[in-house]
Design a protein around this nucleic acid. Sequence first.
DNA 1: GTCTATAATTCGATAGAC
DNA 2: GTCTATCGAATTATAGAC
Lengths: 193, 193
Amino acid sequence: MTGTTQTQQAARRSDATRAAILAAARERFAADGYEKATIRAIARDAKADPAMVMRYYDSKAGLFAAAVAINPGLLDLPVEPSEEIGRRLVSHFLTLWEENGELTALLRVGATDPTAAERVGSVLREQLIPLARQVGPDPEQAQMRATLCASTVLGLAMTRYVLRFPASMELSREEIVEWLGPTVQRYLTDPTP
Amino acid sequence: MTGTTQTQQAARRSDATRAAILAAARERFAADGYEKATIRAIARDAKADPAMVMRYYDSKAGLFAAAVAINPGLLDLPVEPSEEIGRRLVSHFLTLWEENGELTALLRVGATDPTAAERVGSVLREQLIPLARQVGPDPEQAQMRATLCASTVLGLAMTRYVLRFPASMELSREEIVEWLGPTVQRYLTDPTP
DNA sequence: GTCTATAATTCGATAGAC
DNA sequence: GTCTATCGAATTATAGAC
């Protein structure tokens, strides 16, 4: 029915605009970065009032934090089978990056904001260091090997999703996996050169 | 002598502050990005008046353009000998990035500003595509291979100089060359996987 | 819960005295 | 050439009517 009782309907209505604001914020932060993405523009996209954004998320910083809060388990990569782990990791990250706009937002803002930069680092550390420890030859090298993998993945994310180089955007998913997969595989498992 | 004639001394004085402003601008843009680097702060660093910045460089955009104007030939990479080209290219870019703060500034601003992003792309294209055409097996693949190399170099620059991951900053120059060199070598010369 | 009006800052840019 | 004073615009954030 269209006209139900007000008591619970009101709560639902505010939840809907909350979600709309959050979605609009993710897009704007991903597209424009932190400074250029204004609360006014985000509210306009979400068809809400700018004052509502402040009411729900306290401040612009609070809104950004909520917009790029990473769903726990979002980046979890199944570890087995460990063969072809390089290709599977690249493929996994490609999917994540295309399905979750908050990753681009976080990386783009991280280029200017140290707090966001640290967040990018912690996410990658939590994902890649355990992996490197598991499949690598020497546990003491896990941090270094994870860093090399992070650099590989972020390099692609920069050229393809942040800087948007046409030549990088034209690469097919298969091409990327076939070229970068062996690179990551080597960083993870090969003996020190 | 300390008190020379005014006519030419005046011109020299203004040139000195011009240079000081430009140096301060490079540091601020590299450290904070475009929006956060204010003309007031840059002028303070250069011990100059904010109005002088406008007088010399017209606008903030003009100042940024001058600050990241790339010296012609700055990135020129000697092509021969073509053996070990991967390691030499990585080593070359490492040196450039550590000696020229404007590269970090350009990449950091490029993360938010499409114009700067295009500048990063054009610089890399002009450098890497001819190289890929020269040493690669198929001229038609030069653009793709150059893009893979750009992604590799920019990934390292991001983790090391922009996001400033401690684990990436701790890598020695030799480690980076030994790990990334063969990657770039493969992207440039190996047959399609 | 929603929106209007506005306060409080900050910044780029300009005008003009010296 | 140099600096003071200030304008005008844009932003986040708040106060309060409805």
